[in-house]
Design a protein around this nucleic acid. Structure first.
Length: 207
DNA sequence: GTACAGATTGAG
DNA sequence: TCAATCTGTACT
């Protein structure tokens, strides 16, 4: 049985955590049933120094207060008044940084995922931050939960080290307003996965 | 108080 | 291309 990461894992540099989470498994236990998927796409948000981050300049609001928890807790927020986004808080209480989980490949609880998402193609079930939250029933009630125990956790399911060629680093999505930071290569995805969100990084990068 | 844009998505 | 509609920020 795969074991959850200890909270210490999340104290590493945020971009390192973002890469390391690829291939690991996000699990939400709902009514005693596991809904799970392999993480295939992430983005790092670098805290007070990152204009694209909710905690840029150490801003602290009722929405983002979970980012000031220790690494290894959940930060879930509502975007555009409609969709939830799930983040993993990293570092320490003095460094409010996080990793946005943008896409997963469903592995457990397929019937529940389909029921939560309605009638869409298999590859469209969880290939975006809002879609994955809907599929896994992650909402604001999950905000602030520790990720080393039920009901919400991340398990180590990838033992071997990823080769450089298996990971694509590209610019983050939807942060054009952030100036130079919009170009920082902080989006990470598994090359060749059919469950990565659009736009697919292969399409916008020279290979 | 008003105005507006946002780490998105799905319909037209 | 655009509307859904909550949160935060910059104004009046």
């Amino acid at each position: 049985m795969a074991r959850p990461f200890a909270l210490d894992f999340y104290k590493q540099n945020t971009d390192v955590v973002a890469r390391e989470l690829l291939g690991q498994t996000l699990v939400h236990i709902v009514n005693g049933k596991r809904i799970a998927g392999i993480i295939v796409e992430t983005e790092a948000y670098m805290g007070a120094e990152d204009p694209a981050c909710h905690t840029f300049g150490d801003r602290r609001t009722s929405r983002n207060q979970s980012m000031y928890l220790e690494g290894g807790h959940a930060y879930v927020y509502l975007i555009y008044g409609m969709h939830f986004c799930f983040n993993v808080v990293t570092r320490t209480t003095l460094e409010p940084e996080a990793v946005l989980i943008r896409a997963i490949e469903p592995t457990e609880g397929l019937e529940l995922i389909r029921a939560n998402r309605g009638k869409v193609k298999e590859s469209d079930l969880t290939n975006g931050p809002g879609k994955l939250c809907a599929a896994m029933k992650i909402d604001r009630s999950c905000d602030g939960l520790a990720l080393n125990k039920a009901p919400l956790l991340i398990e180590r399911t990838r033992a071997r080290v990823l080769t450089k060629n298996e990971v694509i680093a590209s610019a983050r999505i939807g942060v054009d307003y952030a100036g130079e930071a919009a170009h920082w290569p902080l989006r990470f995805s598994l090359r060749g996965s059919n469950f990565v969100s659009k736009p697919r990084p292969e399409a916008s990068l020279k290979l």
